[in-house]
Amino acid sequence: MLHIVACIKQVPDTKIIKMNPKTNTMDRRTAPAILNPYDAHAVEEAVRLRERYGGTVSVVTMGPPPAVKAIKKCIEIGADEGYLITDRRFAGADTLATSYALTKAIEKISQMNPVDLVICGKMTIDGDTGQVGPGIARRLDIPPLTSVNKVVEVNREEGYAVVHRKLEDGFEVVRSSLPCLLSVEKTINEVPYSPFPNMLKAAQYQPHIWSVDDLEDVDIKQLGLKGSPTIVSKVWAPPKPEAGEILEGNPREQVEQLLSVLLEKKELFSSKEGV
């Protein structure tokens, strides 16, 4: 029976976020909080593996109390248990401090039920780094496998997994000992609409909520802002490029002007012969 932990995060939907142009900060009211889209694929893959091999899927997140909603979303996808670690002392964490806190949570989860596989999304749409997954793997001292777009086999008895890692021009088939950590691509699966019974279960579900004090052997100095080597020193709006010339006239006239612009670069087009 496998125990798979998926790491998930609640994020502001950066697609529709509005920025305050004066302060260059997010106007959080304009951005609904959603489950990081990449993490939905991580949970879905965990659920599929459980269906194949049997076992338990737990999800874990570090975030503010409203992140319970993202956990419920994962229960809808099919996760069995959810853990939220939430505490002021976690606030302001960069990827190094985030991976530290999550590792402490996974270690605690593992004490109750040993973890075989940790699955992360490729990246978050707010942090946007993809660094947390490999960071957790190093701290747990298990092999990190990033860019995974297929899980071929997980063999708990013999203690190995075989996955495909996406490369620029194909993929590689990699075998790793268990436990290991996978960061999965969006292409690994499609997340279907949640089955109705899962929705019902999610509506009732109460996740486990832990503070720093519920975790063991925590070095407070490695948490949150204090434990973060990187700091944001300055934010600014990306410079607006200068507007160019609008070509006036009817379509034919517009095209004629455009053509003369293009033909100034005619050396580029000569290589086209024979294509």
Partner: peptide
Amino acid sequence: ATSTGKDLASAVATDLPTGLTAD
């Protein structure tokens, strides 16, 4: 900031440890 570069940098930064800025 390629798949190899990101993978390696994330692991190395964790072990050193040090800060790592992405992309």
